[in-house]
Simulated assay, not measured.
Amino acid sequence: KKRVWNLLDLPAPKPEITAYTLSLGMPDAMERQAAENAFRPLLKTKLGGGEEDVARIEAVRRGAPDARIIVDANEGWTPELYQTLAPVLVRLGVQMVEQPLPAGQDEALLELERVLPVCADESCHDTASLSHLKGKYDMVNIKLDKTGGLTEALRLRDAALSAGYQVMVGCMVGSSLAMAPATIVAQNAAVTDLDGPLLLAEDRLEPLFFDESGVHGPSVGLWG
């Protein structure tokens, strides 16, 4: 019986290092979260907007001195705040910020020197979104929940790469079944963020397998 990737004429998905998301909180709480997850190679930190975000990232860096860090501003910054925070976050080793400005107000990114690479999340839903991103973003976050499924997600990935964007493959909180098709999209992505099942109290009977190599492709008992 052929697997989905065979039907798509793609190689079987190999493990991809996935980000692990730290909840937004006070700096001391975020430092504890980071320390508890310092063994993970890639941490994603939610930010709240405001200069206190620097204290949060300083705390995360203390807790996990060796981890790669990406941040999600959740549309909570202004252009002025990006200009203030971005150089500081770069010095702290942050590699990218997701959606710093509200999707409807991201024209301002055209005028900014993006010293910290910017990833489109709420501003990028499907292939049709790409024409609105030129000159504003360096990376796009592809989520099955936004594209509507695997076919459009793969189409968006290929179009984004052809247009010169880096690719992130992300998720909402969900079970291993919800993540499984995204393991195909995530192959060789610059950033993989498929930690949804790790944030659940219970998962599928045959869940995705996570280890030091990252998130593995689904078993035949799960999907595909």
Rank of each mutant, 00 (worst) to 15 (best):
T84P: 00
R91G: 01
E111H: 14
V97M: 04
E113V: 13
D53C: 08
L156P: 08
R91W: 02
D145L: 14
E122A: 12
G49R: 07
V71F: 07
L101P: 08
A103Y: 00
R61H: 09
I142F: 07
S175M: 05
K146R: 15
G63T: 13
G93K: 04
V173S: 01
Q95E: 15
L112E: 09
L112P: 06
L144G: 15
V169G: 06
L116I: 11
L47P: 07
A159T: 10
V140G: 09
L92A: 06
R62C: 12
V54S: 02
M168I: 12
A163G: 06
V140F: 01
N141P: 09
R61D: 11
V118H: 05
A67D: 10
S129P: 08
D138W: 02
A103F: 00
L177N: 04
S175E: 04
R61F: 13
H125F: 07
G149F: 10
V71L: 06
L116Y: 13
N74G: 07
C124I: 10
A108Q: 12
P100L: 08
E58S: 03
S176R: 04
R91M: 05
L156T: 03
V118N: 01
V71P: 07
L154W: 03
V118L: 03
H132D: 13
Q83F: 06
R68Q: 14
G170Y: 02
K134P: 00
P100G: 11
L116R: 08
L177V: 02
Y82N: 02
D121K: 14
R56G: 03
V90P: 02
H125K: 15
D158Q: 15
E122P: 09
A163E: 10
D138V: 10
L161T: 05
G48D: 11
I69Q: 10
I69W: 09
K44C: 09
P181T: 06
Y137Q: 14
E107A: 12
I142T: 13
D138F: 05
D145Q: 15
T84C: 01
M139Q: 10
S123F: 00
G148E: 08
S162T: 14
L161R: 15
R157P: 08
D158E: 15
E111F: 11
I70H: 00
P87H: 14
A120N: 10
D145N: 13
L89P: 01
I70M: 03
A73P: 06
A180D: 04
R157Q: 12
E52F: 13
R56I: 14
T151D: 06
D126A: 15
H125E: 08
E107W: 04
D126I: 07
M172I: 00
I57R: 00
W77Y: 11
V173C: 07
A153Y: 03
S123M: 12
W77S: 10
N141K: 15
R61S: 13
G148H: 07
I57G: 04
D121S: 12
G104P: 01
V88P: 02
C119W: 03
R155F: 00
G164V: 12
S123K: 14
D106P: 01
P79C: 12
K46F: 01
G164K: 12
G148M: 02
E152D: 04
M179H: 01
A103D: 02
L101C: 11
L81Y: 07
L81D: 01
M168Q: 11
R157M: 11
I142L: 14
Q83C: 13
G149W: 06
A64C: 11
P102L: 03
V54T: 11
L156H: 09
L81I: 04
C124H: 07
T78K: 04
K146W: 02
W77F: 09
A178D: 01
L85W: 05
